[in-house]
Design a protein around this nucleic acid. Structure first.
Length: 221
DNA sequence: GTTCCTAGCAAGTTACATCA
DNA sequence: CTGATGTAACTTGCTAGGAA
């Protein structure tokens, strides 16, 4: 038998006399470590505390994983609803009321806090996801609007160019090749009537814009 | 001030019960 | 029987308080 197993057997024989004698030592060590979870290595740092806890666990039933009754869970949930933290006094009182080990109550609260946090994170994720999706939709809508406006701007500029060319052809006093509001005398504009003006400055949906400002728009291609 | 012990917690993991 | 799921119990690493 290797020294470590020997040590473990000694430890086990102290706590659980009579149990190991009927079985192979290796099997006893494996089984007891499995079912009673004797933290041999960890107990080195806190040996006495570990022994005490191991004994407490054995005295309170030994076997692990006992499903709590609905009544026990109800009372625990009720207490958790009041306060997520569990001070020592409340833990002992609850354990006594429920007929459980105080450690079980502590473990239940730890697990319950973990589940609560997990659920909160899921809710937060869901909320952020919805927000993100709304933002993406709004971004698409705005991009589409920008495209439409660019098209309208292009059309307006083409129309402006056509009008300028017609103006140049019919009048010899217009020397400036570039378009500007200042360069256009009111009589010149009025020559084309209201239809000509609207072709330049009117946008569908009652959106009137300033031609010059749109030319310098940040959305310009 | 330092060391040791104890208790509690979060995060991650394991083991078991239950169900489809 | 088996895989998925929920959860009790455990492990690890850390912190804090009290006693020696």
């Amino acid at each position: 038998m290797n020294p470590q197993v020997e040590d473990q057997m000694e430890l086990i024989s102290q706590f659980y006399p009579g149990i190991y004698t009927q079985l192979e030592p290796q099997q006893v060590v494996l089984d007891l470590r499995r079912f009673l979870k004797i933290e041999y290595v960890q107990e080195k740092r806190n040996h006495e505390g570990g022994e005490r806890r191991a004994k407490e666990r054995l005295s309170s039933g030994g076997a692990r994983k006992r499903k709590l009754t609905p009544e026990q869970v109800d009372l625990l949930e009720l207490n958790f609803g009041d306060e997520h933290k569990l001070e020592s006094e409340r833990k002992d009182r609850l354990a006594s009321e429920l007929g459980l080990d105080p450690r079980q109550v502590a473990v239940w609260f730890q697990n319950r806090r973990a589940r609560w946090k997990c659920k909160k994170m899921e809710e937060e994720y869901s909320r952020l996801k919805t927000e993100h999706e709304s933002a993406v939709i709004e971004k698409c809508r705005l991009e589409t609007e920008v495209l439409k406006l660019k098209e309208q701007l292009t059309e307006a500029e083409k129309e402006k160019q056509r009008l300028l060319e017609r103006g140049e052809g019919g009048s010899s006093n217009s020397a400036s090749p570039s378009f500007s509001m200042e360069a256009m005398d009111p009589p010149f504009l009025w020559e084309f009537g209201m239809e000509g003006l609207e072709a330049i400055f009117h946008l569908p949906g009652n959106n009137y814009i300033h031609g010059i400002e749109l030319v310098n728009s940040p959305y310009e291609m």
